[in-house]
Design a protein around this nucleic acid. Sequence first.
DNA 1: GCCCTGACTGCTA
DNA 2: TTAGCAGCCAGGG
Length: 124
Amino acid sequence: MEPSFFERVYRVVQQIPSGKVASYGQIAALLGHPQAARTVGWALNALTSERAAQVPWQRVINSAGRISISRADLSADIQRALLEDEGVEFDEREHVDIRRFGWAGMDWDEVEALWGRKRVTSDE
DNA sequence: GCCCTGACTGCTA
DNA sequence: TTAGCAGCCAGGG
């Protein structure tokens, strides 16, 4: 069956290696909708704390390389701490150097292939 | 099926 | 670099 847009967002985010970051627009473009960046943000916003433990949501930032989170339970402060713990550096203006820590990304086909290998049937 | 909302983005000033 | 504005997409009520 076809995974929902949200589900696809989560799968792509899970492919982002530690120490790297990707922008909402990049995720959206990878899914075939370069203009759906807001929806990607919304997908992460809908992430449950349980799911958040599996999805590296902190590695997703905006195109400016800055954190634009607005949730009470998941502050930008926490996200920055998590990224710094992975080796991502922030400058005094709190923005990441995309050229150094930006994720190259991959095709949706690759993501799908990786998931297909890991889990053929059933969900957790 | 319509309307609103949102962790965005690109453009202009 | 920052601020304001409109466009875009999917899910929830």
